[in-house]
Nucleic acid binder design. Structure first.
Lengths: 187, 187
DNA sequence: ATGGGCATGTAAGCGGTTACATGATTAT
DNA sequence: ATAATCATGTAACCGCTTACATGCCCAT
């Protein structure tokens, strides 16, 4: 995803702490699990060495020093260049949609599974996606209420339609299985 | 994507050479660029050490020795366990659809771009996706003709619908831009 | 004979994960 | 009190990429 450019993007909007950037990435760029601290702070250190960001050490009356991060003009330029470039728009993988839905890597081998086990796998995926659909719907309506950035709202709207697409597809797959149980099994 | 399990899956269908596995991955699992030789042969070596595969050295009358790879019973078991498990079905990322379509990482920051540049970006994405749509349609009709594995055909059908979804979305985005040029710009 | 595909590898490096480690502040 | 959250880091490791290297076979 190009962590460094995303960080520059966030910092070009607001200066902040490393920890805050992590939180923003979770809620804006959609990483469910925490961005790991390891990569975050090492990447930040690298970026400082390269002069893309600067640290302002803020020493409060109480407690330990906090490091407020500012983007430099070089950092801004790097970010702008990236945003205007074609980098990271297409990763060179033809079936990139499979990357986004890792379940597919396994579906490729479903002919090795019996119809019962296959059906089970499909069903558990279905309930997972139904849950996700609800989650997206909630997040989306929240975004609409607080009139969030329209681009980011649009992205979520895409995501919602995508889950619906997956659900529809999984249902079709299960239908196939019931109609043609033989062709769908044994490789 | 869990290279090792995919390799085991392919080898459980047919024994083959390293090079052949690479080709299969390209056309079945959808990597457009070549799977790099580095990881392939080092992974294969590792798998041999762990007793998941065996090499049969085939010495032809002419030319250098070729290594035919066979899956072992341990390898088969490992593959079956993986296929039945929940591993690699969900990668723990809430917005995984963004991973599959890396363009989104950039869209997140489109408010930093002027409406003209944004429109340009959208247009070039559109033509890219139109091309891909054609490619998918061709591949899909080929698969239907030669009656390929129904699961893999279904996956491609998903992919096709997905590109169509992306195209529709990009068009909507461009429409937004024309109707509300102000809210769509400046962060 | 030349270029492209088949086939097999090695080495350096990078980006990211996992796990560990510490300590202060805030909320219950 | 004590648990959760804020905040900052380090070290080991792993999967994968990039780049290099070699040599055969086959078609034009």
């Amino acid at each position: 995803m190009s962590l460094r450019h995303v960080l520059l993007g966030l910092l070009s909007e607001n200066s902040g702490h490393g920890y805050g950037l992590r939180k923003q990435m979770v809620h804006r760029l959609g990483h469910f699990r925490n961005i790991n601290e390891g990569q975050l702070y090492t990447q930040l250190a690298k970026m400082e060495n390269e002069g893309l960001i600067e640290r302002e050490v803020v020493v409060p009356d109480k407690g330990p020093a906090r490091k407020l991060l500012h983007i430099t003009s070089k950092g801004k330029q790097t970010f702008r260049d990236w945003l205007r470039s074609d980098q990271h728009e297409n990763d060179g993988v033809l079936y990139d949609f499979m990357q986004g839905y890792s379940f597919f890597a396994k579906v490729n081998f479903f002919q090795h599974l019996g119809p019962e086990e296959t059906r089970q796998k499909i069903r558990s995926q279905l309930s997972l996606m139904e849950e996700r659909k609800k989650a997206y719907q909630e997040i989306l309506s929240q975004m609409e209420q607080r009139e969030a950035d329209p681009f980011r709202t649009r992205i979520l709207a895409f995501g919602l339609k995508e889950v619906e697409h997956r659900i529809e597809w999984l249902n079709e797959l299960e239908g196939d299985l019931s109609r043609h149980p033989k062709e769908a099994t044994q490789g």
